[in-house]
Amino acid sequence: MKSCLSFEEVLAVGEPRLAEMQHVGDIFADGESAEACAAFTQQVRNVEAAVLHSYAIAATVARKADSLEEVAEVWKKMSTFCHSALAILARLKDKYPHCGTTELYDRVLDYKLACDKRYQGALEEKQCLTIALPRGLLPEMR
Protein backbone atom coordinates (compact mmCIF):
# COMPACT_ATOMS: atom_id res chain seq x y z
CA MET A 1 0.00 0.00 0.00
CA LYS A 2 1.33 3.44 -0.92
CA SER A 3 0.04 6.33 1.18
CA CYS A 4 0.79 10.05 1.30
CA LEU A 5 0.31 12.47 4.16
CA SER A 6 0.05 16.23 3.77
CA PHE A 7 2.23 18.35 6.05
CA GLU A 8 -0.95 19.52 7.78
CA GLU A 9 -1.71 15.89 8.64
CA VAL A 10 1.82 15.43 9.96
CA LEU A 11 1.37 18.43 12.24
CA ALA A 12 -2.03 17.14 13.34
CA VAL A 13 -0.25 14.06 14.72
CA GLY A 14 1.73 16.32 17.08
CA GLU A 15 -1.17 18.50 18.19
CA PRO A 16 -2.52 16.06 20.81
CA ARG A 17 0.92 16.26 22.49
CA LEU A 18 0.40 19.98 23.02
CA ALA A 19 -3.11 19.47 24.36
CA GLU A 20 -1.88 16.73 26.68
CA MET A 21 0.91 18.94 28.04
CA GLN A 22 -1.62 21.67 28.78
CA HIS A 23 -3.97 19.17 30.42
CA VAL A 24 -1.28 17.63 32.64
CA GLY A 25 0.08 21.08 33.44
CA ASP A 26 -3.29 22.18 34.74
CA ILE A 27 -3.97 19.07 36.85
CA PHE A 28 -1.49 19.80 39.65
CA ALA A 29 -1.95 22.64 42.08
CA ASP A 30 1.73 22.65 43.08
CA GLY A 31 4.05 22.34 40.08
CA GLU A 32 7.11 21.97 42.30
CA SER A 33 6.01 18.71 43.95
CA ALA A 34 7.97 15.62 42.90
CA GLU A 35 4.88 13.94 41.46
CA ALA A 36 3.92 16.98 39.42
CA CYS A 37 7.43 17.53 38.11
CA ALA A 38 7.82 13.88 37.09
CA ALA A 39 4.53 13.99 35.17
CA PHE A 40 5.28 17.32 33.55
CA THR A 41 8.85 16.35 32.63
CA GLN A 42 7.40 13.52 30.57
CA GLN A 43 5.13 16.02 28.79
CA VAL A 44 8.12 18.26 28.11
CA ARG A 45 9.95 15.33 26.50
CA ASN A 46 6.92 14.43 24.37
CA VAL A 47 6.44 17.97 23.10
CA GLU A 48 10.14 18.37 22.41
CA ALA A 49 10.07 15.18 20.33
CA ALA A 50 6.96 16.40 18.45
CA VAL A 51 8.55 19.77 17.62
CA LEU A 52 11.89 18.33 16.52
CA HIS A 53 10.30 15.57 14.48
CA SER A 54 7.80 17.92 12.82
CA TYR A 55 10.56 20.40 12.01
CA ALA A 56 12.65 17.68 10.33
CA ILE A 57 9.65 16.71 8.20
CA ALA A 58 9.00 20.38 7.35
CA ALA A 59 12.59 20.71 6.10
CA THR A 60 12.20 17.57 3.99
CA VAL A 61 8.87 18.75 2.53
CA ALA A 62 10.25 22.26 1.84
CA ARG A 63 13.22 20.73 0.00
CA LYS A 64 10.89 18.87 -2.35
CA ALA A 65 8.42 21.75 -2.83
CA ASP A 66 7.68 22.78 -6.41
CA SER A 67 7.11 26.47 -5.70
CA LEU A 68 8.13 29.21 -3.30
CA GLU A 69 4.48 29.56 -2.28
CA GLU A 70 4.55 25.94 -1.15
CA VAL A 71 7.84 26.50 0.70
CA ALA A 72 6.40 29.56 2.48
CA GLU A 73 3.25 27.65 3.41
CA VAL A 74 5.19 24.78 5.01
CA TRP A 75 7.28 27.14 7.15
CA LYS A 76 4.28 29.22 8.12
CA LYS A 77 2.45 26.11 9.36
CA MET A 78 5.51 24.89 11.26
CA SER A 79 5.94 28.33 12.82
CA THR A 80 2.29 28.29 13.92
CA PHE A 81 2.81 24.88 15.52
CA CYS A 82 5.81 26.22 17.45
CA HIS A 83 3.78 29.28 18.43
CA SER A 84 1.05 27.04 19.88
CA ALA A 85 3.64 25.15 21.94
CA LEU A 86 5.21 28.42 23.13
CA ALA A 87 1.84 29.80 24.24
CA ILE A 88 1.29 26.78 26.51
CA LEU A 89 4.87 26.76 27.76
CA ALA A 90 4.79 30.49 28.52
CA ARG A 91 1.81 29.91 30.78
CA LEU A 92 3.32 26.88 32.54
CA LYS A 93 7.03 27.60 32.78
CA ASP A 94 6.69 29.54 36.04
CA LYS A 95 4.50 26.83 37.56
CA TYR A 96 6.98 24.09 36.57
CA PRO A 97 10.35 25.85 36.80
CA HIS A 98 12.45 22.72 37.43
CA CYS A 99 11.07 20.27 34.86
CA GLY A 100 12.96 21.33 31.72
CA THR A 101 10.17 23.76 30.87
CA THR A 102 12.31 26.87 30.43
CA GLU A 103 14.87 24.95 28.38
CA LEU A 104 12.13 23.64 26.10
CA TYR A 105 10.61 27.11 25.80
CA ASP A 106 13.97 28.49 24.64
CA ARG A 107 14.54 25.64 22.22
CA VAL A 108 11.07 25.89 20.65
CA LEU A 109 11.54 29.65 20.35
CA ASP A 110 14.78 29.03 18.42
CA TYR A 111 12.97 26.57 16.15
CA LYS A 112 10.18 29.07 15.58
CA LEU A 113 12.73 31.72 14.63
CA ALA A 114 14.31 29.24 12.20
CA CYS A 115 10.87 28.67 10.62
CA ASP A 116 10.18 32.41 10.41
CA LYS A 117 13.57 33.03 8.80
CA ARG A 118 12.87 30.44 6.10
CA TYR A 119 9.31 31.71 5.59
CA GLN A 120 10.56 35.28 5.21
CA GLY A 121 13.37 34.06 2.97
CA ALA A 122 10.92 32.40 0.58
CA LEU A 123 8.84 35.58 0.36
CA GLU A 124 11.93 37.71 -0.25
CA GLU A 125 13.17 35.25 -2.84
CA LYS A 126 9.87 35.53 -4.71
CA GLN A 127 10.05 39.32 -4.55
CA CYS A 128 13.68 39.41 -5.74
CA LEU A 129 12.89 37.23 -8.73
CA THR A 130 10.86 40.16 -10.12
CA ILE A 131 14.23 41.95 -10.54
CA ALA A 132 15.81 40.32 -13.57
CA LEU A 133 19.53 39.59 -13.55
CA PRO A 134 21.46 40.43 -16.72
CA ARG A 135 21.50 37.42 -19.02
CA GLY A 136 24.57 35.22 -18.62
CA LEU A 137 25.31 36.26 -15.04
CA LEU A 138 24.15 32.98 -13.59
CA PRO A 139 24.08 29.65 -15.39
CA GLU A 140 20.62 28.85 -16.72
CA MET A 141 18.75 25.69 -15.86
CA ARG A 142 18.30 23.49 -18.90
Binding site: K64, D66, L68, V71, E125, Q127, C128, L129, L133, L138
Partner: peptide
Amino acid sequence: PVFRRHVCHLCREFLR
Protein backbone atom coordinates in the same frame (compact mmCIF):
# COMPACT_ATOMS: atom_id res chain seq x y z
CA PRO B 1 20.75 40.76 -1.24
CA VAL B 2 18.97 40.49 -4.61
CA PHE B 3 21.84 38.46 -6.07
CA ARG B 4 21.86 36.22 -2.99
CA ARG B 5 18.15 35.45 -3.35
CA HIS B 6 18.59 34.63 -7.04
CA VAL B 7 21.39 32.22 -6.14
CA CYS B 8 19.22 30.66 -3.42
CA HIS B 9 16.51 30.10 -6.00
CA LEU B 10 18.94 28.51 -8.42
CA CYS B 11 20.23 26.29 -5.62
CA ARG B 12 16.67 25.11 -4.89
CA GLU B 13 16.17 24.23 -8.56
CA PHE B 14 19.57 22.57 -8.75
CA LEU B 15 18.86 20.39 -5.72
CA ARG B 16 15.42 19.42 -6.97
